[in-house]
Simulated scan of single mutants.
Amino acid sequence: MRVPPLPADQWDDEKVQAVIRTACAPDRREPGESGNAIATLVQHPDLAGAYLPFSAYLLTESTLPPALRELAILRLAHRADCAYEWTHHVPMGRAVGLTDADIDAARGADAATDLHRLIIAAVDQLFDRTTISEQTWQALTGFLERRALMDLVFTVGGYLALAMGLNSFGVQPESAQWREDAHQARPAAEPGPA
């Protein structure tokens, strides 16, 4: 682990507390409850304070429908080999209606619908070439309005940046029980990176 989670006895720093208050649900504001990603990001409170509101927007205010958002995040997590994102977003995806077949499609199985195939193609194109092809973009316009398409691009980019950080810092997923408790305690779209 290159950047460990901030030890609990250092959470009293004013900047850390400001970040936690604005970025975390009330039930996730104590050390041990916030998760390893936030506990690691607050090692750099200024960076966390800038990134976490953007992350919260992607999860709670984006115009991209939640199931499509989660499918895109899972595809990106798979492509980026980010175990932390994957383990958090599988239950989040299920909570917003993704099926086991949809989750398998994020790993490369055939998607069940044209829209899901297009979302996966868009993620792959952004990951591989930093742009969505004209053909994929035009096909997506048949399903999504312009703002949702913009949110799709920034969801993939935001979660790629987070995956790079989590993978590079060595952030480890919490136990399965911790994740189950955390995801049951808050709605699928509560703030905080996952």
Rank of each mutant, 00 (worst) to 15 (best):
D128K: 01
V16R: 02
G142Y: 03
W137T: 08
M92E: 11
N167L: 03
D46G: 01
D46M: 09
G32P: 11
L149D: 10
L166R: 00
L74F: 02
A37G: 07
V3M: 14
A50L: 05
D9T: 14
T131F: 10
R107S: 10
M92N: 02
G32C: 01
Q177S: 15
P187K: 11
G93I: 06
Q43K: 05
I120V: 14
L118N: 01
L47V: 13
C82R: 02
I119R: 07
S133Y: 04
T22A: 12
E30H: 07
S55F: 08
L52F: 01
E174D: 14
A50D: 02
P31M: 03
T155K: 14
A111Q: 12
F127M: 04
G142H: 12
T155A: 00
D104W: 04
C24P: 13
G170H: 12
S55E: 12
T131L: 07
R75K: 01
L144S: 07
I20S: 04
A80T: 12
E134I: 02
G97T: 06
L115R: 11
P91Q: 05
I119W: 06
P193M: 12
V96T: 10
P4N: 10
A105M: 02
M164N: 11
I38L: 15
D102N: 11
G157V: 05
W86H: 02
A176C: 00
E85D: 08
L59D: 08
R28K: 15
A8N: 11
H78D: 09
E190S: 15
R79V: 00
I103Q: 09
P65M: 12
F169H: 08
V96P: 00
A25T: 09
G157L: 14
A39D: 13
E174L: 06
G49Y: 11
S133F: 12
V42M: 04
V123H: 03
G192Q: 06
L166D: 13
Y84I: 05
